[in-house]
Design a protein around this nucleic acid. Sequence first.
DNA 1: ACTTACGGTAAGTGATGACTAACGCTGACC
DNA 2: GGTCAGCGTTAGTCATCACTTACCGTAAGT
Lengths: 108, 108
Amino acid sequence: MTNADQVLDALGDRTRRAVFARVQRGARSVQEIADGMDVSRPAVSQHLKVLKAARLVTDRAEGTRRLYAVDPTGIAAVRDWLDGFWDEALVAFKAAAEQEAVKERKRR
Amino acid sequence: MTNADQVLDALGDRTRRAVFARVQRGARSVQEIADGMDVSRPAVSQHLKVLKAARLVTDRAEGTRRLYAVDPTGIAAVRDWLDGFWDEALVAFKAAAEQEAVKERKRR
DNA sequence: ACTTACGGTAAGTGATGACTAACGCTGACC
DNA sequence: GGTCAGCGTTAGTCATCACTTACCGTAAGT
């Protein structure tokens, strides 16, 4: 399982995307992240575990609190993965469009 | 639910990613896509439905067959979504790194 | 009209995974 | 040492969803 796979699986959940968004907006401790969300703190903790495994966030201890921050690594992984699809998709799309144009011409 | 949400939900499944990859590699009909995969043809059909809703693929009828092709729209949507995170993540990351550097300096 | 190939859909089942409640651990403060 | 706050983890439940089987509609060939 590549890192891109992990990231896509991680971001495949709506709640987890919300957690990730809150971390990115500057939320630090698990409590702060969970506050205002409609899921319990342990749930957030589990989501953070998945996000961390996907290299989307990093954590570090500060006293009894645990501060989370965004990790660009995971984002870079999907980004690269997507770019690959993007390029090949564009090529295929252009080819298909031209194919269509040829057919269109033949019809007349 | 935005298009980016749909795409991320769609790509959150491993099998669906495989289907998408096969379409992108040039597979056209549902049969061709299903051949060699370890799931049945109806399963592939359902996955294609989700991918289509997320604007990741397009379909068009040709006789009794239905040809699928990659649709760049959905990819563009996640790409934009990711780019937003990417930029802000970099900023936050740099800030954090500098914060760390400051602390490091103070320690000495 | 009959048959065959192709594919979408409905219904039902099974498995994955998201969530909560309860517990245990650690660091800070008294 | 005792207490409290902050988190991770476990066990167990519940819901979501991926998958299969069976069925039906449609287009092409005979």
